[in-house]
């Protein structure tokens, strides 16, 4: 299987959030109790039960209002820092597809993956276990399209072989492909007509330097039965 990817085109997104609901429906994720915080965006952030959310960005450009909808989710890095730091092998990269997935049963909730993530993506459920986009790897392995891409009415989220998606986006005239080269190539690529900052995407994502070392240390801690404190991980990486 070739490396799989999602091509996200915010210019085609109508902010309907079918992707948020389809994700919850397929993955049996409960709704969260939310309130209106003066914006349509909800839930306010990714959580262990919200793997994919649409950010609603309002801007005034040359006197004209703009409303921009941008998917926030795991980018499925080619060299995923989260996998490298995970001391128990709960976070994994599927070698066939490049999808970064996880095994909740193995996760010990140390949250090192979030600290290591260049996009601050991983979140945790009420039991402290990891929950994030896994590109519906169960569907992909069965030859199906991930729930978000399947349900997207406008083609703002497309799924396919990563290389083909990138070719397609270039053929459609997109000059900026955020994620094509970043961090050695991400599984989730944004096709943009404006610079990444316009969409409030991380302009130049960086992987923390000491990720590999951190991962190995954490493994030792686990092997020794020592607890892992998040503050120390953060300090180590800073």
């Amino acid at each position: 299987m070739a490396r799989k990817g999602l091509l996200i085109t915010p210019d085609l997104c109508i902010g309907c959030r079918a992707c948020q609901v389809a994700c919850k429906s397929w993955n049996d994720l409960p709704a969260e109790k939310t309130k209106n915080n003066g914006t349509h965006e909800n839930p306010p952030d990714l959580t262990g039960y919200t793997y994919n959310k649409i950010r609603f960005i309002e801007k005034v450009v040359n006197g004209e209002v703009r409303w921009i909808f941008v998917s926030q989710r795991c980018r499925h890095c080619g060299e995923p820092a989260c996998v490298q730091v995970c001391p128990v092998g709960a976070m994994q990269k599927d070698l066939d597809t490049g999808i970064v997935f996880y095994d909740k049963n193995v996760c010990i909730g140390c949250q090192a993956c979030r600290s290591a993530c260049p996009f601050d993506v991983p979140r945790y459920d009420k039991q402290g276990k990891i929950g994030k986009c896994h590109m519906c790897i169960d569907r992909v392995k069965a030859g199906l399209v991930p729930a978000c891409a399947k349900t997207c009415p406008t083609g703002a989220i497309r799924f396919g072989d990563r290389d083909e998606l990138i070719e397609k986006a270039k053929a459609e005239g997109f000059k900026i492909l955020h994620g094509e080269k970043e961090l050695g190539g991400l599984g989730v690529v944004f096709a943009l007509s404006q610079p990444p900052s316009y969409y409030e995407l991380v302009e130049n994502p960086q992987k923390p330097e000491k990720v590999v070392a951190l991962g190995e240390m954490l493994k030792i801690l686990v092997a020794k039965g020592l607890p892992i404190e998040n503050s120390i991980i953060k300090e180590f990486l800073s």
Binding site: L214, M217, I220, L226, P227, E229, E235, F236
Partner: peptide, 16 residues
């Protein structure tokens, strides 16, 4: 068992 900063740095050498 609380892991001190010193312990942690010691471990980091080991992991390398």
């Amino acid at each position: 068992m609380k892991l001190t900063r010193r312990d942690f740095l010691k471990l980091s050498i080991g992991s390398l």
